[in-house]
Amino acid sequence: MGCFGSKCLKEPPGYENPAILAAETAFSVSEVEALYELFKKISSSVIDDGLIHKEEFQLALFRNSKRENLFADRVFDLFDVKRNGVIEFGEFVRSLSVFHPNSSFEDKVNFAFKLYDLRQTGFIEREEVEQMIVAILSESEMEVAAEVIEAILDKTFSEADTNMDGRIDHQEWTAYVLKNPSLMKIMTLPYLKDVTTCFPSFVFNSEVEDAS
């Protein structure tokens, strides 16, 4: 394929053709182009290199590039599919697609499982859930007695760990979220149905004729 004019020069490493990304995700070409406007904004906020670094991700999430958060770290790592410490545009679009209202429940359930499987062992272990509870409590500056944390863990595992081996496997997780669908609310971002309105400037850079 040729590379005409100046078009290729402004495309950073990791940039992917919006038409290909649209074909592989829940987004239309226009929506991918609108997401590129968001991506450019986030990826240029600290280091203007067309890649999202962890600091930039934290800045976009918390308005603070130094704020450390267990879950933001996990989300960043899952978005960074190539595991090279940065989120490229293609990774950004493919990962966000899981959060699209039209994406499958199965994709959302799988992503959430990976998110909570902190040590990536293929199971959500009791220690991992405890670590996450402690993180959320410290984030909200709530002091909760150790017995209360134990009681929350007992309740959760008595409901989710149906084979009682002390950890939640993928099948148990799927059954558990089907019984508790509210747990999947965080896996859908209504904004994603509306990205072209949020970032209307994409039309000035659009490569497709019908960008409506």
């Binding site: 986030i42 976009a60 999430l61 989300v75 509870i133 984030e139 929350i152 409901e159 508790n180 747990l183």
Partner: peptide
């Protein structure tokens, strides 16, 4: 007191999981 909240309900309240912040201007 009986515990009524499960761990994942609690966890899903984390700001770090609130990706809608990415879209705030």
């Amino acid at each position: 007191k009986p515990v009524t909240m499960n761990a994942f309900e609690l966890i899903s309240m984390s700001q770090g999981l609130n990706l809608s912040n990415l879209f705030e201007k």
